[in-house]
Design a binder for these strands. Structure first.
Lengths: 136, 136
DNA sequence: GTTAGTGCAAATGATTTGCAAACAG
DNA sequence: CTGTTTGCAAATCATTTGCACTAAC
């Protein structure tokens, strides 16, 4: 594994990720950086997010429209999210039952290497009240 | 709602979908059609799949690599799948508990319009035995 | 100096759209 | 005829890659 060099760009990306408690897509992170006057190349944003994801330093989820969204994360356990499809705000969920259910199905149907992806999307209280704060 | 006209292309698409008991992407369906000598424009394949999906005549799932895959379906109830990531073979799953769990979480976290997507991917017995039959 | 990191421009690849020609009722 | 459907070519759009350049160590 190679060493990581703290560059201006990397620091900026981490800062914005720390501050945002919601999920952000690469493009949204890119925009957020420019707004802060911390412009970083889009390519760099993508590459850093990828690295962070590989190291499990961010949670990665695919939004309903297909875009990947990322969020700072420390928990190293497997877990799921309830994500606001408007503002990206998210709640972490644990569900052991689901894990067990998955395993028993895999056995029953003789499938191996079964992985599961479960993400819940909805509108958080804020967003269902105001129609402002729309992501797009 | 407009009427549907039975065209050569539409019939061919439905035929292949009926015969395949596995999930297929638009591109795979397109290839399958050519192999059968029933060439249909790729655009047409996409448009028909979209229409079928709108009418709930096919199940639509997003594969791990991001491609949408489709399969003929009659059940109109909400359900999930255990899909082989190699050959597309799938098993339908029902899980009322999951539905209930979703609802209770929505209430608890005050989210509205919560939808959930759960798809399990693995390797079916056939595919985990032989390394042939790989989708890609 | 080496090696990791950056960023522009160009490539990718699935999906969508414009539009004129072909077809079903 | 009249509204659908088709299919090519071109457009989209998030993401990736080639490559020359810059910055850590």
């Amino acid at each position: 594994m190679s060493k990581r060099r703290p560059t201006r760009q990397r620091t900026a990306i981490l800062t914005v990720l720390e501050e945002a408690d919601s999920f952000l897509s690469a493009q949204e992170l890119y925009d957020a950086l420019r707004l802060k006057g911390l412009s970083v190349g889009l390519t760099t944003v993508y590459r850093n997010l990828q690295t962070l994801a590989d190291r499990n330093e961010v949670d990665v989820v695919r939004r309903e429209d297909g875009e990947w969204i990322y969020r700072r994360c420390d928990a190293d356990q497997h877990h799921h999210h309830l994500v606001c499809r408007s503002c990206g705000h998210a709640v972490e969920l644990a569900n052991d039952e689901l894990e067990l259910w998955t395993k028993s199905l895999a056995r029953k149907h003789r499938f191996s290497e079964v992985t599961h992806d479960l993400e819940l999307f909805g509108l958080c209280r804020e967003c269902s009240t105001s129609s402002a704060n729309q992501r797009r």
